[in-house]
Computed example of a mutant assay.
Amino acid sequence: MAATKSDTITEEEISKVEEGAYKSTPNKANDNIGFCSSAPVVTIAQKFIAEVIGTYFVVFAGCGSVAVNKIYGEVTFPGVCVTWGLIVMVMNYSVGHISGAHFNPAVTITFAIFRRFPSLEVPVYIAAQLMGSILASGTLALLFEITPKAYFGTVPVGSNAQSLVLEIIISFLLMFVISGVSTDNRAIGEMAGIAVGMTILLNVFVAGRISGASMNPARSIGPAIVKHVYKGLWVYIVGPIIGTIAGGFAYNLIRFTDKPLGQLTRTGSFFKSASAPS
């Protein structure tokens, strides 16, 4: 096979390389790679993909268990609770080291408020989470015959106020646990996935029959968009966000600090202490 131009190296070029004086001709193609090849862009793209995949499987498995139980009746309510806890734990350990395994716009917003997460990445994460939820909900709608009785989204069984209060309380607990196991250096980081998964399992046991135990706006918005069921949807957007912010605030109040309480409770000092290492 004939040698190409790039295969031909003269003795003069070799000597220049040995002397450290040779400089390759600038490659215009490499210069044109530009923005999309930069490390920050690649990193945020990886996080975006991780959040899409993670949220997809959380919703696919969790909502899938709801749909299968309503259609075939073999999963049972305790089985649904266990499924939600297990899938969150599994995906936490799968992509937590890449994106932080939020899978939840309320968690992302709360981390950003308390300076545990870059504010500029919030829209990217929320878009990824909504995309994952919508794709998973669409998949379930294609695989199963989803009648109104088999709807796998969240609709208040009682009043909107009752479900709202429940969502605030269980979201508070969820974020309180997440703050403890993932933002405090004194916690055992390897146990974060188990702690968060078990918290969700317990919350679904308590509130699942009444509010659906969403704790996650994306989890409720995806099925609502796919099946066009918007009854009480605002409860599952407002409730989790209020609850997670309150949970993050509560944990930051008890986080170890050497500052006096009066200084800690001032707005500026509080958020600075929240962003400082434990």
Results as ranks from 00 to 15, higher is better:
Gly54Met: 05
Val204His: 01
Glu12His: 06
Ser163Asp: 07
Ile188Asp: 05
Gly222Cys: 12
Pro105Asp: 04
Lys259Arg: 09
Met175Arg: 03
Ile178Ala: 06
Ala3Arg: 09
Pro118His: 08
Val229Gln: 05
Phe205Ser: 12
Lys227Gln: 06
Phe103Gln: 06
Asn203Val: 15
Val204Gly: 12
Ile200Ala: 09
Gly100Thr: 12
Ile237Leu: 14
Val17Asn: 15
Ile200Phe: 03
Val204Cys: 09
Arg255Tyr: 07
Thr147Lys: 08
Phe172Lys: 10
Thr10Val: 08
Gly62Cys: 07
Val95Gln: 03
Lys227Gly: 13
Tyr22Met: 10
Thr83Pro: 11
Pro123Val: 03
Ile170Cys: 04
Arg266Asp: 14
Phe271Pro: 07
Ser211Tyr: 05
Met198Val: 02
Pro148Tyr: 08
Thr110Pro: 02
Ile71Met: 14
Glu145Met: 08
Leu174Ala: 14
Val88Pro: 01
Ile134Gly: 14
Trp234Leu: 08
Gly158Thr: 04
Glu167Asp: 02
Val17His: 12
Ile33Gly: 13
Glu145Arg: 01
Phe270Arg: 02
Val88Cys: 11
Trp234Asp: 01
Tyr151Gly: 13
Ala21Leu: 12
Lys231Phe: 05
Ile210Asn: 05
Ala112Asp: 09
Thr257Arg: 11
Pro217Trp: 00
Tyr125Met: 03
Lys149Ile: 14
Gly138Leu: 12
Leu201Tyr: 03
Ser269Gln: 13
Gly262Leu: 04
Glu74Ile: 04
Leu130Thr: 07
Lys227Thr: 10
Ser94Asp: 13
Lys272Glu: 05
Thr139Arg: 15
Thr139His: 13
Val75Gln: 14
Phe60Ala: 01
Ile188Val: 14
Lys231Asp: 05
Thr76Gly: 04
Val181Lys: 15
Asn185Ala: 10
Ala128Gln: 04
Lys231His: 05
Ala207Gln: 02
Val196Gly: 00
Phe271Met: 04
Val155Cys: 13
Ser159Trp: 10
Ile242Lys: 09
Ala141Gln: 05
Ala161Leu: 09
Ser163Lys: 11
Ala29Asp: 15
Val90Cys: 10
Asp258Glu: 07
Ile169Ala: 01
Phe60Asp: 02
Lys47Asn: 05
Ile188Pro: 00
His97Phe: 03
Thr83Phe: 12
Gly132His: 14
Glu18Tyr: 15
Glu74Cys: 10
Phe117Cys: 11
Lys259Trp: 10
Ile200Asn: 06
Ala3His: 15
Ser37Ala: 10
Val75Ala: 12
Arg186Tyr: 08
Val181His: 12
Val58Ala: 12
Met131Gln: 06
Gln46His: 04
Ile44Arg: 15
Gly79Phe: 02
Ala101Lys: 00
Ala61Ser: 10
Gly243Leu: 07
Ser6Ala: 08
Ile126Phe: 04
Arg115Thr: 12
Val66Asp: 09
His97Ser: 11
Arg266Phe: 07
Ser119Gly: 11
Gly138His: 02
Pro223Lys: 11
Leu202Lys: 13
Phe117Thr: 11
Thr154Ala: 10
Pro156Thr: 00
Ala213Thr: 14
Thr108Trp: 00
Ile254Cys: 04
Phe103Ser: 04
Ile14Gly: 15
Pro260Asp: 13
Glu12Thr: 02
Ile210Glu: 06
Ile168Tyr: 13
Met215Glu: 03
Gly189Leu: 07
Leu143Lys: 08
Val75Pro: 11
Phe60Arg: 03
Ser37Asp: 09
Ala218Lys: 07
Thr267Gly: 10
Met89Tyr: 14
Ser99Val: 00
Gln46Gly: 12
